[in-house]
């Protein structure tokens, strides 16, 4: 995992810099394949964390343009989203957030939309669908309700 502080993103230099994202995903194969493929095709740097705790530590110094979080039954995922929105990390408080999970109920979707989550994806998910979501996020498309990309 790389974790360099990018500093404030503004101006022409920032525009020329490829986007940096943090992927919080415990599944090694999914996480590594996404990060390495992003590097290979040059769509930007995808930093990796396998746990919410590691993500909180990383985001204390790493400024990202987007954060992709795999949610499970633990509260840490929603807490991480709250921390991001509170501006308690090195990211801008309005940083683009996308989430994925095995299931979503209405209460959870409502909570995510209230936090301004831009993409909600259902697992199982393919690597190519993650890249499609990343591309959509880079175009700043409006928030979408949970949907599989299948």
């Amino acid at each position: 995992m790389s974790g360099a502080d990018r500093g404030p993103s503004s101006g022409a230099a920032a525009a020329a810099q490829p986007p940096a994202m943090l992927l919080v995903e415990p599944n090694f194969m999914l996480r590594r394949t996404i990060a390495l493929t992003a590097r290979n095709i040059g769509v930007g740097e995808i930093h990796e964390c396998s746990s919410y705790e590691a993500a909180e530590r990383t985001l204390s110094t790493l400024r990202c343009d987007g954060v992709f979080i795999a949610l499970n039954e633990e509260p840490g995922g929603m807490r991480l989203i709250s921390r991001l929105r509170e501006g308690a990390t090195a990211c801008a408080a309005d940083v683009t957030i996308a989430v994925m999970a095995d299931q979503f109920d209405k209460a959870r979707v409502d909570a995510l939309l209230a936090q301004g989550v831009a993409r909600i994806l259902l697992k199982p998910i393919k690597v190519r669908h993650i890249f499609e979501a990343v591309a959509a996020l880079s175009r700043r498309e409006p928030a979408a309700a949970p949907a599989t990309a299948n």
């Binding site: 590594r32 394949t33 390495l36 493929t37 095709i41």
Partner: peptide
């Protein structure tokens, strides 16, 4: 397609 080929290359690298 090109993205799928890139994913296959990544899995090969692993």
């Amino acid at each position: 397609d090109s993205l799928e080929l890139a994913i296959l290359e990544t899995l090969r690298d692993l």
